[in-house]
Design a protein around this nucleic acid. Structure first.
Length: 272
DNA sequence: CCTTGAACCTGCGGGC
DNA sequence: TGCCCGCAGGTTCAAG
């Protein structure tokens, strides 16, 4: 499910529901997701109050009234749902947070590519999950000068480069395709040959991400939308998922190629 | 150093 | 209807 806009949407939904909430118990239905839960995981969270929720890259960070933070990555299929009281569990419900007012937060993840772990809040930037991450795309550190210099030293094509979380975080397969369409750049183009388009690439990335956040954020109402699903499915894409369909701009059929193991969607006429 | 491919795991849709 | 294959929004690790 999640690239930056979906994670941001989930973050906002969770913050509405969970800010100030006290965790009375955590139930684990298995020993881990992509990696095992750390020792004492449930016990460390029990009795803690959630003071705020932030996002770094595609990670959610739950700040607690303790020296540790809860770090969550949704992987491909992770989702949260909240309820006002306990509910019957369903397939792939792996972690159940019961709050002190009897509300329940459930983490469900069919593919279990997600991560849930604890880290010291003091040293979070040195955490192995975060230490290699590049700048946030919506912040000023993602500048034209920075992107230009990064692209200049790369030999591979531009599209996989945009998905590299050490270059810039939060951009996944969908928004890499969409941003390149908007910028009019062919995904196969070598990174080092599009350095003069760095400004346009940045603007395109920011535009597709911001529009997606707005589309998700505008539908934050009840617990279903905490998963970000509604926002995601409401959103319309120019190229992603549209193989063979006519380009909205020129009518040419959208093509696909495989790059670094992922399907790239693009318009061969509009993107040069 | 940089880049690609496979692996992790389950569900779903298309083709036969 | 049912089975098999390919594919899916991510990350990491091994290997070229």
């Amino acid at each position: 499910m999640p690239e930056l806009p979906e994670v941001e949407t989930v973050k906002r939904g969770l913050e509405n529901v969970l800010k100030g909430a006290k965790i009375s118990s955590v139930t684990l239905k298995r020993s881990g997701l992509r990696v095992p839960f750390p020792p004492g995981f449930a016990k460390s969270l029990k009795g803690r109050t959630i003071t705020s929720i932030t996002r770094r890259a595609k990670y959610l960070i739950f700040h607690l009234d303790s020296p540790q933070v809860l770090i969550v990555h949704l992987g491909m299929s992770g989702r949260f749902s909240s309820y006002n009281h306990s509910v019957p569990l369903t397939r792939h419900d792996h972690v159940i947070f019961t709050l002190s007012d009897d509300r329940v937060l459930i983490y469900n993840d069919a593919r279990r590519f997600g991560i849930m772990t604890l880290a010291d809040s003091e040293s979070i930037t040195e955490n192995v999950l975060f230490s290699h991450l590049g700048p946030e795309p919506l912040e000023k550190g993602f500048s034209t000068a920075y992107l230009k210099s990064q692209l200049a030293k790369r030999k591979g094509p531009i599209k996989p480069a945009l998905m590299d979380q050490s270059l810039v975080v939060g951009v996944g397969n969908i928004y890499a395709c969409e941003a390149l369409f908007l910028a009019g750049i062919a995904p196969q183009k070598p990174s080092s040959e599009v350095t003069d388009k760095a400004g346009a690439i940045i603007n395109s990335i920011r535009k597709v991400l911001n529009e997606a956040i707005e589309s998700g954020g505008s539908s934050l109402r009840d617990f279903y939308q905490i998963s970000g699903e509604t926002g995601y499915f409401q959103h319309h894409f120019n190229v992603y998922g549209r193989r063979g369909k006519p380009c909205y701009s020129c009518g040419t059929a959208i093509h696909t190629i495989k790059q670094a193991g992922r399907t790239t969607f693009f318009c061969p006429t509009c993107q040069k």
